[in-house]
Each structure stands twice: as structure tokens, then as C-alpha cells.
């Protein structure tokens, strides 16, 4: 991190209890502007919950600030790409309609869409290579194409802090490379990327920072220093041995 660079996202002591289960236990992390961070950790470590708590989509205790202020104030700069399983793919909506949903803040009264807004959405689709699919129903696309459409929605929104929940789940290797290409170009343009990630073998190639999470922060920092055998054992080891459900 360069000295003086404003953190895109800062999280302090994030704690969330579901009934009697502690989903997050004082997790803290700093995400510098223009960085690309993988959130990794065992199942049930609270990775998705971490993202949702940051966005205020679930009520958690703790301090979260984005671009130096409260998250609610800068929602327009933040985009969230949900897990594939969280979306109803049979919904009657075309690719272009999904991307236009990202323009809602920019459209006028009650969200009426004009030609300029459609062009803006088409440009976002072109950036992820999906411009030829604009009129397709969203459910008729492959998993990777759907992921790219949601990324286009984030681009159309003009967000420079993008949170993704397992963007590569159910995606073939070629599409995975295409998505990571788009994400890297966004980062190079100054955007901050944070993704929940499962495949430990690709962490070093895809990301420049890592947050190792297991309800609390186990380690965070640059991949080279943080993504170590010791830290991984700390994050994954105890859960594997002590998991009562196993």
C-alpha cells in the first residue's frame, strides 16, 4: 500500500450473531484503493456474510467505512455481484434489462429509460464481451456469461468498489480467464475489487492481496507474505478437525 492512499474500504470489529451462532467475531480488514483482494477461508467462515455486513444488507455490529465515510453515503460507488445460487434465472428479464438495473440511480423519475441510458448499458456489455447477447433471456446464458452480465451491471453503475461472491463458481476455465481479465483491467483503472474465492490454487495468479477469514481475521495482506502454509493451517486446520458437523 502506498503511504497516504485512502483505503477504499475499512472494516473494524465486524460481529454478527445468528440466533446462537457467531457468524462473524470481530473481523477487521483494510482494502486499499486499486487493490484486488481474495477473501478465503473454510466453509462457514462467514465470507459471504462479511460482504453482506459490509454493505449493510444484514445488520452487524462494528465499524465499516468506504472512501473515508459511511457506506450508506457512497452506495452509488459500490457494486455487489451475488452468488449464482441467489438469483432466479427463470425470471423474465433480458440481458440488457439486468444491466439497465445498474443505471437506476442515473435514470430520471421512476426510472424511465432513454436512448442515452441504453447506449450506456450497451457500452458496459461490450466491456465484458457480451454485447451480442443483449436481447437474450438471462436464463438462456451459460454460468460464465451470466457472471459477466452481472459484472456489466456493476460497470454500468459506475462503481469503483466491486464486491463479488464466488464469481467463479460453476464457470468454465476460459470464462474464468475472461472474467479475471475484466477485473484486472478495472483494477488497473483504479477500481478496488474484493471477491470471495474458493480455489486456493489460483489465488496467487489472480489476486494481489488476501484476507484469510475464519469468523475473525486470521491474516491479511499482500499475497506473497500472507498466503503462507502457516496462515492457511491456522484458517483451515482447526475447522477441519473440530467441525462438529463432520
Amino acid at each position: 500500500m502506498q503511504a497516504g492512499a485512502e483505503a477504499a474500504l475499512q472494516v473494524q470489529g465486524l460481529t454478527l450473531r445468528y440466533n446462537d451462532v457467531l457468524a462473524l467475531d470481530g473481523a477487521s480488514a483494510t482494502f486499499p484503493s486499486g487493490s484486488m483482494t481474495a477473501i478465503i477461508g473454510p466453509n462457514g467462515a462467514g465470507k459471504s456474510t462479511f460482504l453482506k455486513s459490509v454493505l449493510g444488507l444484514v445488520e452487524a455490529e462494528g465499524q465499516v467505512s468506504a472512501f473515508g465515510g459511511p457506506v450508506a453515503k457512497v452506495m452509488a460507488r459500490i457494486a455487489y455481484v451475488p452468488q449464482r445460487a441467489a438469483v432466479d434465472w427463470s425470471f423474465p428479464v433480458r440481458v440488457i434489462d439486468v444491466v439497465l438495473m445498474g443505471c437506476y440511480r442515473k435514470t430520471g423519475l421512476l426510472g424511465r429509460i432513454d436512448r442515452r441510458m441504453t447506449a450506456h448499458a450497451m457500452a458496459a456489455l461490450a466491456r465484458v464481451g457480451m454485447q451480442d447477447f443483449a436481447r437474450r433471456q438471462i436464463g438462456a446464458l451459460s454460468g460464465g456469461q451470466q457472471q459477466r452480465v452481472f459484472l456489466a451491471r456493476a460497470l454500468a453503475q459506475g462503481a469503483d468498489l466491486i464486491l463479488l461472491d464466488e464469481p467463479f463458481a460453476g464457470v468454465d476455465a476460459a470464462t474464468e480467464a475472461a472474467i479475471i481479465g475484466v477485473l484486472k483491467s478495472l483494477r488497473d483503472g483504479g477500481a478496488t475489487i474484493i471477491a470471495v474465492h474458493h480455489d486456493l490454487s489460483t489465488v496467487a495468479a489472480y489476486f494481489d492481496r488476501v484476507l484469510l477469514l475464519n469468523r475473525r481475521t486470521v491474516a491479511e495482506g499482500a499475497v506473497a507474505e500472507t498466503f503462507t502454509r502457516t496462515a492457511l493451517a491456522q484458517a483451515y486446520g482447526p475447522a477441519l478437525i473440530l467441525d462438529p458437523a463432520a
Partner: peptide, 13 residues
Amino acid sequence: MVAFDPLHARMMG
């Protein structure tokens, strides 16, 4: 928007 993706709708205000 709410019917398709309530979380995103919320982020869009």
C-alpha cells in the same frame, strides 16, 4: 428490480 434482486435494488436506493 425488487422482485429480481432485492439486495441490488436496495443498493440502488
